[in-house]
Design a protein around this nucleic acid. Sequence first.
DNA 1: AATGATTTCAACCGCATATCT
DNA 2: AAGATATGCGGTTGAAATCAT
Length: 457
Amino acid sequence: MGRHSCCYKQKLRKGLWSPEEDEKLLRHITKYGHGCWSSVPKQAGLQRCGKSCRLRWINYLRPDLKRGTFSQQEENLIIELHAVLGNRWSQIAAQLPGRTDNEIKNLWNSCLKKKLRQRGIDPVTHKPLSEVENNGEDKNPPANNVQDKASGVSNELNFLQANNSNRGQSLQEKKRSPASAQAYQLEGQGSNSKTMSSNANNHRNNSNLLTPVSNKDFFLERFATSHQEGSTSNCQPSDLHFPLQQLNYASNARLITNSIPSLWFTNTSKPLDMNSEFSSSSIPSILPPTTSSFLSTPLAFKPSVTVPSDDPPLASFPISSSRYWEAGAPSNNSNSSTGSSGYTELQTNSSFFENTLFSWGLGDCSSTEKEGQNQLMGSQQEDVKWPEYLHNPLIMAAALQNQSPQSLYNEIKSETQFLSENSSGMWPHNQQQQEPFQTSNICAKDIQRLTAAYGHI
DNA sequence: AATGATTTCAACCGCATATCT
DNA sequence: AAGATATGCGGTTGAAATCAT
């Protein structure tokens, strides 16, 4: 199996993406979808390899990304999932709408590992450090010891929850606090992020050791049954309110579908509905798919939004043989109005995704390109405001196609002024979205970056 | 204010696997 | 069936940001 051809090509740009490159990629994908990634850079006029474009899209430009700090619930879920899945970041990310595997991986390596160590818990095994040390070399035991791992998770989460009772403070703020800094110093000399990574793992060696049976027992016990019985307790892991039905639809779905298909999917290829309440109500029920295995499962994709339980699914996924991303048509209704008050209203009552049909679908590229292009030319784009531009680059791209640079600049500028008067640096609507996640935050850094990136237009 | 240390995170690399020819 | 190519994933790196002195 060969290395990706791009690796041999010279002249290709590497490193950080410039705003212009972002814009090109955004325009291209907005218009045509990504199709074959290897052809994207050429078609988009980028001196990048397809791989780089794909990564940029997935980790940064994708319109459904949340950005901002992780909520306590998200952190808890990551820890819990890591205890079961190990470093399978893509699968963990699949349970966290709007979060990328890279983001989660970074969070784990830079923060969560430290927190666990501080607690005396080995972040690799999720067992007490003393126990791990006693076992000598057994630093990376088989991951199928799920019950042992699971038993430790509750303690980890209890600690972390207590530690974060003053959760108004952002994670990053906490990291910078002297107290936490001291704690981190204590946990080990030379424990910077680089050396930690050497400890990272041998996921590839371990990955197959996570037996389906253990997974099944674990999840059925910890999630399905607890939810179905409506059991609640004080912030126990099983109260995290996340459906687990899609846990394995990502890259390693092969393992699941090949070995225990009945566990994760019904015989109609629908996700196992462990708890209908959760699958249809307060949680965005689906994530952008990353593999074709996902695409065989018809699911709604509605990221980063809390929706009423009676909301219909927004998209379905016809089955075909080629993969592409398609931006669908905005609906005709628009809740937005002009000015900052209009922005607030829009964010509160609606969202881009509630007005927009997204399909991570399959089918014939040629037919959908035109459709996607036409669909994106909806008339209400001009009503979209700066926060939407920031939060949904797709809107920005669509607007870029329709608006003169000057008019867009003026609009952006006026909204930026509004933002600068809002000293919190957070979007007002964040409070509207704290359940189940406290995400969709765009921090000041994001604003700064995007302003730098697109304010020049 | 300057400088060094530390942390964060975007992006790259290489490998495994899927898909195509 | 086999080789070539494309995609996805996790580990790692290093520039930039932030903190401590």
